[in-house]
């Protein structure tokens, strides 16, 4: 179907569970982008204790803590979203998937907020 004909056919995406799948996918991509940076930071230890300590001091910066809060949110929402999908695929069907997806989102927000409270 041509892109022009498709323009009028995206209304089905106004669906909480479609959004849940997108959140799961995009959070996974964001975490995949973060992973090389994580290994890069760990790699600083190879060059010596001082470089790693310097980097860890820099991470005490409030902006970095805020970014880490986002990271905790991404980790939690991706993990809980993944568990929801695994349960769908491997356990008997359970209705109320929208509620379960919203609960996963709420739990991820709580986890991120708890991290922020500890960090400040």
């Amino acid at each position: 179907m041509s892109p022009r004909a498709r323009q009028h056919t995206a209304g089905h995406r106004r669906n909480a569970l479609w959004m849940a799948a997108m959140v799961h996918r995009l959070s996974g991509l964001a975490l995949a982008c973060f992973l090389p940076l994580h290994f890069l930071a760990l790699g600083l230890a190879i060059d010596g204790e001082a470089r790693l300590d310097g980097f860890l001091k820099w991470t005490a910066n409030p902006l970095v803590k805020l970014a880490e809060t986002g990271l905790v949110f991404l980790l939690a929402v991706h993990m809980l979203g993944g568990i929801r999908v695994l349960l769908i695929e491997n356990m008997p069907w359970r209705d109320g998937q929208k509620n379960i997806a919203f609960a996963a989102l709420a739990l991820a927000c709580v986890a991120a907020f708890a991290f922020l409270l500890r960090a400040v």
């Binding site: 089905h12 569970l17 479609w18 799948a21 999908v85 769908i88 069907w93 998937q97």
Partner: peptide, 20 residues
């Protein structure tokens, strides 16, 4: 498992559950 099929099915079936 987007469940758009269930959301839109006029007969209120749940093909996602069948696929699972």
């Amino acid at each position: 498992s987007h469940q758009s099929c269930q959301e839109h099915c006029p007969n209120k079936l749940n093909p996602t559950a069948s696929i699972a």
